[in-house]
Computed example of a mutant assay.
Amino acid sequence: MVIARRVRVADAAVEVIADEGLRGLTHRAVDARAGLPEGSASSCFRTRLALLRAVLDRVVELDEAALAGLEFPPGDAAAVADALTGFLEYSLGPGRARTRARLELYLDAARRPGLREPLAAANARFLDRAASGLAAAGVADPRGAARLLLAQLDGLLYDALARPFAPADRAWLRRAVGAAVRSLQV
């Protein structure tokens, strides 16, 4: 029951950050979003930093689950681009709140050291995963290519979230991802 409540609080905190930004993140706002009695979020995560860490852990957990089936077939740039396009569509659709919260955390970690280390560790896991997939696909410098690919994908996500007046439909995403993948010489 305690674990379920902690997950519920973390999920509600993700939604608060997505809707209100980090300035709107308070224990009271999380309680209200989760539909829990006042003080519930604070009893799960005593400090704001603990709450932010819970958000980070939850975002990473859900992103890793969403990436679990993603494969980079050797020599098949079109299949790689299709898989990544699907992931971006998910990140901008059902995973949109999580994507917004993740980007907010990145920006906050650049200004405050409290989240830097765990965010760097999570980023390293995603970088390792991408490098492994790119190595399997036959990319010559998989680590360097993975860093570039993650930057390009985050840029596409940022663009889609920060510029709602320029919608990122599947065709646009597929063209952009295709260009990124071709630049890696998959």
Rank of each mutant, 00 (worst) to 15 (best):
E89C: 14
L36I: 00
F45R: 06
A13I: 00
R102S: 13
L103K: 01
H27E: 00
V139L: 09
E104H: 11
P113G: 15
D141N: 12
G75Q: 07
R46Y: 09
G69R: 07
L149R: 04
L36M: 08
L156R: 05
F45W: 07
P142A: 09
A65I: 03
A131H: 03
W172H: 13
R58M: 10
A68G: 03
V139K: 10
G114Y: 06
A32M: 10
R112P: 00
R48E: 13
R125I: 00
Y158Q: 08
V9H: 02
A34M: 05
A10C: 05
A97P: 05
L56M: 12
F87R: 13
L92V: 03
P37E: 13
E15I: 00
E71M: 02
A54L: 09
A65L: 12
E61T: 11
T26H: 09
T99H: 01
E117Y: 07
V55L: 01
R48W: 11
A97Q: 11
L157R: 13
T99A: 14
R48P: 10
F165G: 14
H27T: 00
E89P: 05
A81R: 01
R58C: 11
E117R: 15
R58Y: 08
Q185C: 09
V177C: 02
D128M: 04
G75H: 07
D141Q: 13
E71H: 10
V60H: 12
N123W: 14
M1P: 12
A78P: 03
L22F: 06
P74C: 05
R125Q: 07
A13E: 00
F72I: 06
A124N: 07
L49I: 14
M1V: 14
G24I: 00
G69N: 07
C44P: 03
A78I: 09
V14L: 02
A110K: 04
A136P: 01
E117T: 14
W172R: 15
P118Q: 10
V139F: 11
A41L: 06
R46C: 09
V181E: 02
L115H: 09
A179E: 15
G133I: 05
D169L: 07
P118G: 08
A83T: 12
L161R: 05
A12E: 02
G144V: 02
F72L: 10
A122E: 05
R28C: 01
V9P: 03
L156M: 15
T85N: 02
Y158V: 08
P73E: 08
